[in-house]
Computed example of a mutant assay.
Amino acid sequence: MSKKVGLYFGTFNPIHMGHLVIANHMVENSDLDEIWMVVTPHNPFKKKSSLLDNHHRLEMVYLATKEYDKIKPSDIEFSLPQPNYTINTLTHISDKYPAHSFSIIMGEDNLKSFHKWKNYEAILDDYSVYVYPRISEGIIETQFDNHIKINRVEAPIVQISSTMIRNAIKLDKSVRPLLSNEVWKYIDEMNFYKK
């Protein structure tokens, strides 16, 4: 069955309630049928030292999303050559699932630098982009404001970050309300982010 799928990319190190709030809001308040949480193997802009292994982050996304029918974990990028670019993932996933149509989900802050992405014009030729708001200095104006493929979705602004969670765990502070129960248990049992 053909579906409109929104791809929500992230290292999810760890996945937290903010990610789930945004994913759920996007799928419930747009024409998307499903959101796939695409776990990125390694972002060249992030320090690798604090990044958990791919399979642990994928497991946490699975644990966080298993009760949501419209939100799914995806390891599609694990098999792609690194460093990888979004255009490559989109081409690969479209070939693999030809019945589905795919879109990208991104924060407003990423839209500002979207023109620097590799082959961003090709992305906009073939795919739509769904943008959720981020707290910023006033309204972010971009060259894409009236673009037919850019869809802005009014979503709650969530001020939780994975970095904040990792730092709190390192300081032995409770982060339980910021994580789904299953993810919190997994992190606690595995002793992740303690040092």
Results as ranks from 00 to 15, higher is better:
residue 46 K to H: 10
residue 46 K to C: 12
residue 46 K to V: 14
residue 47 K to Q: 09
residue 47 K to P: 06
residue 48 K to N: 13
residue 48 K to C: 08
residue 48 K to P: 09
residue 49 S to Q: 13
residue 49 S to R: 10
residue 50 S to Y: 06
residue 51 L to D: 05
residue 51 L to Q: 11
residue 52 L to S: 14
residue 53 D to S: 07
residue 53 D to Q: 13
residue 53 D to N: 13
residue 53 D to P: 09
residue 57 R to S: 02
residue 57 R to V: 04
residue 58 L to M: 10
residue 58 L to E: 06
residue 59 E to P: 00
residue 60 M to Y: 09
residue 60 M to N: 10
residue 60 M to S: 11
residue 61 V to N: 11
residue 61 V to G: 12
residue 62 Y to V: 14
residue 63 L to H: 09
residue 63 L to R: 14
residue 64 A to I: 01
residue 64 A to M: 05
residue 65 T to S: 15
residue 65 T to W: 02
residue 65 T to N: 05
residue 65 T to C: 15
residue 66 K to N: 14
residue 67 E to N: 15
residue 67 E to P: 00
residue 67 E to Y: 07
residue 68 Y to F: 14
residue 68 Y to D: 04
residue 68 Y to M: 10
residue 68 Y to W: 01
residue 68 Y to N: 12
residue 69 D to L: 05
residue 70 K to I: 00
residue 70 K to H: 15
residue 71 I to N: 01
residue 71 I to T: 10
residue 72 K to M: 08
residue 72 K to G: 00
residue 74 S to N: 07
residue 75 D to F: 01
residue 75 D to I: 02
residue 75 D to Q: 12
residue 77 E to W: 09
residue 77 E to V: 08
residue 78 F to Q: 14
residue 78 F to E: 12
residue 80 L to N: 02
residue 81 P to S: 11
residue 81 P to I: 08
residue 82 Q to L: 13
residue 83 P to M: 11
residue 84 N to K: 02
residue 84 N to Q: 03
residue 85 Y to W: 14
residue 87 I to G: 06
residue 87 I to K: 09
residue 88 N to R: 05
residue 88 N to A: 03
residue 88 N to D: 15
residue 90 L to F: 11
residue 90 L to D: 01
residue 91 T to F: 10
residue 93 I to L: 01
residue 93 I to W: 03
residue 94 S to H: 02
residue 95 D to N: 15
residue 95 D to H: 13
residue 95 D to W: 04
residue 96 K to L: 14
residue 96 K to E: 12
residue 97 Y to D: 04
residue 97 Y to L: 13
residue 97 Y to I: 06
residue 97 Y to M: 12
residue 98 P to M: 07
residue 98 P to R: 10
residue 99 A to W: 04
residue 100 H to D: 15
residue 100 H to V: 00
residue 100 H to K: 05
residue 101 S to C: 06
residue 102 F to I: 07
residue 103 S to Y: 11
residue 104 I to E: 06
residue 105 I to T: 11
residue 106 M to A: 02
residue 106 M to C: 12
residue 107 G to Y: 13
residue 108 E to I: 00
residue 110 N to D: 06
residue 110 N to C: 05
residue 111 L to G: 07
residue 112 K to W: 01
residue 113 S to R: 05
residue 113 S to A: 09
residue 114 F to V: 12
residue 114 F to N: 11
residue 114 F to C: 09
residue 115 H to C: 06
residue 115 H to T: 03
residue 118 K to I: 10
residue 119 N to M: 08
residue 122 A to E: 15
residue 122 A to F: 01
residue 123 I to F: 00
residue 123 I to Q: 00
residue 124 L to V: 08
residue 125 D to V: 01
residue 126 D to C: 07
residue 127 Y to N: 05
residue 127 Y to I: 03
residue 127 Y to F: 15
residue 127 Y to M: 03
residue 128 S to V: 00
residue 129 V to C: 08
residue 129 V to I: 15
residue 129 V to D: 03
residue 130 Y to I: 06
residue 130 Y to C: 07
residue 131 V to R: 04
residue 132 Y to Q: 11
residue 132 Y to E: 06
residue 133 P to A: 05
residue 133 P to V: 03
residue 133 P to Q: 01
residue 134 R to F: 09
residue 136 S to C: 07
residue 136 S to A: 15
residue 136 S to K: 11
residue 137 E to K: 14
residue 137 E to F: 13
residue 138 G to F: 13
residue 138 G to D: 11
residue 139 I to V: 14
residue 139 I to E: 14
